[in-house]
Computed example of a mutant assay.
Amino acid sequence: MLPAIAGPVTPERLLACAEAVGETTEWVRERLNAYADMFGLNMTPVEHEDGEGR
């Protein structure tokens, strides 16, 4: 069974979902962003090495 997500989506949850579906966390983030509004997801910004959130 795949993990269910609602509300805040933390980097840890992205990693768990990526492992569950055999994809990268970036792939999962992009897919979830497409449906964030529909499912009420709050995508937590990720800090990059340059200090900018995404």
Rank of each mutant, 00 (worst) to 15 (best):
M1G: 12
M1K: 11
M1E: 13
L2W: 15
L2P: 15
L2N: 13
P3R: 06
P3Q: 05
A4S: 13
A4M: 12
A4F: 14
I5D: 00
A6R: 14
A6W: 12
A6Q: 13
A6H: 13
G7L: 03
G7H: 06
P8R: 11
P8H: 07
T10K: 11
T10C: 09
T10L: 11
T10D: 14
T10W: 06
P11M: 11
P11F: 07
R13H: 04
R13M: 08
R13A: 05
L14F: 02
L14T: 00
L14R: 04
L15H: 13
L15R: 13
L15D: 15
A16W: 01
C17T: 02
C17N: 00
A18T: 08
A18E: 08
A18C: 09
A18R: 06
E19S: 01
E19I: 03
E19Q: 04
A20F: 02
A20M: 02
V21T: 03
V21S: 00
G22T: 04
G22C: 04
G22F: 03
E23P: 01
E23N: 08
E23D: 12
E23K: 09
E23F: 07
T24K: 08
T24A: 09
T24L: 07
T24C: 07
T25S: 11
T25F: 02
E26D: 15
E26L: 14
E26Y: 08
E26S: 12
W27L: 09
W27S: 14
W27G: 09
V28E: 01
V28P: 00
V28N: 01
V28I: 06
R29H: 10
E30M: 06
E30F: 05
E30H: 05
R31A: 05
R31D: 05
R31H: 04
L32E: 07
L32W: 13
L32A: 08
L32C: 10
L32S: 10
N33H: 10
N33A: 10
N33L: 12
N33V: 10
N33Q: 13
N33D: 14
A34S: 10
A34T: 11
Y35S: 12
Y35Q: 12
A36W: 11
A36E: 15
A36T: 12
A36M: 12
A36I: 08
D37K: 13
D37P: 10
D37I: 07
D37A: 15
M38S: 07
M38T: 07
M38E: 10
F39I: 09
F39D: 11
F39Q: 06
F39E: 10
F39N: 09
F39M: 09
G40R: 03
G40W: 06
L41P: 01
L41C: 09
L41E: 06
N42I: 10
N42H: 04
N42W: 01
N42D: 09
M43V: 12
M43A: 04
T44Q: 15
T44L: 11
P45M: 05
P45V: 07
P45D: 06
V46Y: 05
V46H: 05
V46G: 02
E47P: 03
H48R: 14
H48W: 15
H48E: 13
E49T: 15
E49N: 14
D50N: 08
D50G: 02
D50T: 05
D50I: 00
D50A: 02
D50L: 01
D50V: 00
G51Q: 01
G51L: 03
E52T: 07
E52L: 06
G53C: 02
G53V: 03
G53N: 02
R54S: 15
R54A: 14
